[in-house]
Amino acid sequence: MKIIAITACPAGVAHTNMAAAALENTAKKMGLQIKVEKQGAMGIENSISAKEVAEANVLILAVDTAIAKSDRFNEIPTIKVPVAEAVKNPQELINKALELVK
């Protein structure tokens, strides 16, 4: 199971990075692979590659703003939530994403 995720928030500093850390820490605890791309005040960080898109099973969008290059993901099952959801309950969010592709 390979998860990809994007986090983004209006100021692009606080919640973008909190959500990314929450998803990464939780996935690690759950023994899952995740790649989290941050679209914030510093542009796109930890960018998801074309290969990673091709191999991904599911996409989590934890975003409060419009994201760049969203057409990369047209074919991937996607769960979209406000960025705070990833901060508040990352495990529940990851479980919902897994449900999508069960």
């Binding site: 500093v13 990075n17 909190m18």
Partner: peptide
């Protein structure tokens, strides 16, 4: 993309 913003970003992530 400055060092300052990078530190604020790192701090935010570390709060998890």
């Amino acid at each position: 993309a400055t060092t300052h913003l990078q530190i604020l970003a790192t701090l935010s992530g570390k709060l998890m």
